[in-house]
């Protein structure tokens, strides 16, 4: 599904990603953990195609395509979804209009007919129920005046509606209380299938109690310094990043 090879990326001339390698297959959930400033969000933004992040080296293959050659909207239509760490407020554009437009772009891309207002509403209500959201949200402006938790839930709702192949969740757990966290995790687990993959970016192990990853990778200073199974997350929680970082540096013969 996804293969990241030696990915280097800079923002405003400063190199953040310094050679990331990662391979994901359909049906898998991968977690990326790491301290603040390690490049987790940069990786997410690069995968989504944010133009402020300049890829200086490496490549990303997504279902046989060179992902970095695609515009952000083309990536989305091909099934790449980024749940934003900081979802943007868009005054004046209702969630319903926004999401129906998005869904129809994806459908058109795959040669499907556009969804009419009634079918859209039915689908939306169904997904909102799963995420315990009030349907009045559809008529509100996108994320405007939403609490942190509502914004994150809205990201997962959008994901549920667009049904992506590769979902990148960028710190979706931050700002969520435990009940909201469970609801969001439940949403992800419901969507999980043999045909899609999730890349869950998080600072804390907490979320991974509910979204159980197949693989855990530790990103430190722009590189994946350690990979392992779900137990690695627990280990990190106890030992902290410093130990893993030291270990990795020692292994690389630097320290």
């Amino acid at each position: 599904m996804l293969e990241i090879k030696n990915l280097h990326a800079s923002v405003e001339g400063k190199e953040i990603l310094k050679g990331v390698n990662l391979k994901m297959n359909a049906g898998e959930i991968h977690a990326i953990m790491g301290p603040n400033g390690s490049g987790k969000s940069t990786l997410a933004q690069v995968l989504a195609g944010h133009e402020a992040y300049e890829v200086t080296e490496g490549e990303v293959l997504y279902n046989g395509m060179n992902l970095l050659d695609l515009d952000p909207e083309e990536r989305a239509r091909e099934g790449v979804f980024l749940a934003f760490q900081y979802p943007v407020e868009i005054p004046g554009v209702s969630n319903a209009y926004f999401l129906r437009s998005a869904l129809n772009e994806v459908r058109k891309h795959h040669g499907l007919e556009v969804i009419d207002a009634a079918d859209f509403l039915r689908l939306a209500k169904d997904k909102m129920k799963m995420l315990d959201m009030d349907k009045s949200m559809l008529n509100r402006s996108v994320n405007e005046g939403f609490s942190g938790g509502e914004k994150k839930r809205n990201e997962i709702f959008q994901m549920a509606m667009l049904n992506p192949k590769l979902a990148v969740l960028d710190e979706t757990d931050s700002g969520l209380d435990i009940d909201a966290l469970k609801i969001v995790a439940n949403g992800v687990n419901t969507l999980r299938s043999a045909d899609n993959a999730f890349l869950v970016i998080t600072h804390y192990q907490r979320l991974l109690n509910y979204i159980v990853p197949d693989f855990v990778h530790v990103l430190v200073d722009g590189r994946i310094v350690k990979s392992g199974g779900k137990e690695l997350a627990l280990q990190l929680e106890e030992a902290g990043y410093d130990e893993v970082k030291m270990e990795a540096l020692q292994a690389a013969g630097i320290a």
Partner: peptide
């Protein structure tokens, strides 16, 4: 906001129009 709409599949020109 333009990027947010693009990241959901709406092309850049259309995103600008909507916004």
């Amino acid at each position: 906001p333009i990027f947010y709409l693009q990241a959901r599949g709406i092309d850049r020109e259309k995103a600008k129009t909507i916004l």
